[in-house]
Design a protein around this nucleic acid. Sequence first.
DNA 1: TGCATTAACTTTGTGATACAAAGTTAATGC
DNA 2: GCATTAACTTTGTATCACAAAGTTAATGCA
Lengths: 98, 98
Amino acid sequence: MIDFDKLDKTIHEKGRLSIMTMLASRGEWRFQELKDQLKMSDGNLITHLRSLQKASYVSTKKELKRRKVTKYLLTRSGKKAFKEYLRLLEQIVAQGSS
Amino acid sequence: MIDFDKLDKTIHEKGRLSIMTMLASRGEWRFQELKDQLKMSDGNLITHLRSLQKASYVSTKKELKRRKVTKYLLTRSGKKAFKEYLRLLEQIVAQGSS
DNA sequence: TGCATTAACTTTGTGATACAAAGTTAATGC
DNA sequence: GCATTAACTTTGTATCACAAAGTTAATGCA
């Protein structure tokens, strides 16, 4: 039996899962890009980003070009946690379709 | 980009996902079996089962053998919804590990 | 210089829901 | 008849998603 308790709750929420998947598929994303792609409100997006940061899964790079810009990216442990999360998804897929 | 909005919320919750996975892997499970395997409280388990039933994903068979026994199983649309859910998980896994 | 605009927030409120604990019902077996 | 068990229901709490509106600080233009 799969140990569902190991499904990382921080990642498992739909909104954060979508953020993590985006960050995993490409290095850096700006706040606006994430917002546009995911069609989340500012408040919702920043809250999810904050909880991912709190878990040390996501870090930021601030740039001051023309406009203030914040880029978000996965940390090393964020990548690791996501990888482990995917590993469990694979198990679920494998078991579910048996 | 994966459409995360299509991730069925009824299934996506950890507790219910574990129930659905069990039911998908074997036809019928008794309340007690589910409870033992998943280590949920009565109240928690029945609540999740109720919301799965409300979504028409799960149905029951009542038996009156020695003791009152209720068996839970996936409905046709439950199987379909779960399959679709797994399909999306696969996409996430594929995209996430790229 | 000041006003509009934009990015990236923060604050606040609401509603949903996970979850546990304790109580209920109805059947069985001694 | 009394303890036990399965399968619930009820109730309360605490968490959390989410949206809406307000805030701050920087830029660009008139």
